[in-house]
Amino acid sequence: MEKQKITVEATINAGNQKVWTYWTSPEHIVNWNFASDDWHCPSAENDVRTGGKFRSTMASKDGKMSFDFGGVYDEVIPEKKLAYKMEDGRQVEVLFEDLGNNTTKLTETFDAESTHSDEMQRAGWQAIVNNFKKYVEGV
């Protein structure tokens, strides 16, 4: 059975190189990789190459909940595409489209999981992408 795919996206007022760097560099990932202000990302590691692994920790600021998010890259095309497999086997593809005029469209498509509704998953991943956009445009 083919998994349901969900897509989230944002148009970011920054050049493609900056968007790529802020998406892939651990020193930036810790500043945007969470869905709401009561969460944070205390750590991130990222080996951005085909076969490379990544991991980040997302945690509630009150310390009551946390989880690790990680996987392995299947394809890396710098400033254009990341494809990876999460630890549970689901696939994710992130596209970086240079729209010119210092603007980049980021599109992330992922296999849905069966525990939460598609709407809840879309909202959570979109919130993270929106947080990324806010961070990149604010720096």
Rank of each mutant, 00 (worst) to 15 (best):
P26I: 12
W20S: 03
W32E: 06
K61S: 09
G71D: 07
Q126H: 06
A44T: 08
E97L: 03
K80S: 13
E27N: 01
Y22H: 03
G51H: 09
E79T: 15
I128T: 14
E119P: 10
G124P: 11
A59P: 15
V92G: 05
Q17E: 09
S60G: 14
G15A: 13
K81L: 10
Q91A: 07
R122Y: 09
N130Q: 13
V76M: 02
V72R: 08
N46T: 10
R122S: 14
V8A: 04
K64H: 05
P78M: 03
V76F: 03
V30Q: 01
T11S: 12
N33W: 00
I77G: 00
F34N: 05
Q126V: 09
S117C: 00
S114Q: 14
G71M: 07
L106T: 00
G124L: 01
V72Y: 10
N102A: 12
L106H: 14
I6P: 15
K53M: 07
R90F: 04
D47P: 01
K61G: 09
A83D: 08
E108S: 06
K61H: 14
I29Q: 04
W20F: 04
D74W: 08
F67W: 12
N102C: 04
E137M: 04
F69M: 13
F67Y: 11
M86H: 15
H28C: 12
N16D: 02
S117V: 10
E9L: 03
E9T: 01
E137I: 03
H116C: 00
A14H: 00
S117L: 08
M1A: 07
N131S: 02
E113Y: 05
E87W: 02
V76C: 07
N101I: 04
F54N: 10
E9H: 13
G63N: 13
T103W: 08
M1C: 00
V129M: 08
A123M: 15
A83W: 01
S43C: 11
L95G: 12
K81T: 02
A127M: 15
E93P: 00
F67K: 08
Q17K: 12
W20M: 06
D74F: 11
E27I: 01
E108T: 11
V72N: 05
Q121S: 00
V30R: 01
R122A: 14
G100Y: 09
H40K: 13
G71C: 12
H28R: 00
E119W: 03
K105C: 08
R49M: 07
A83Q: 09
N102W: 12
D88L: 01
V92P: 01
G138N: 15
A35H: 04
A14C: 07
V94K: 09
W39S: 05
P42H: 05
E113D: 05
K133Y: 13
R122K: 15
V136C: 05
Y135A: 10
G71H: 09
K53Q: 08
A10Y: 08
T107C: 11
K134T: 03
W20H: 00
S36N: 12
N130H: 13
E113C: 06
L82E: 05
T104H: 14
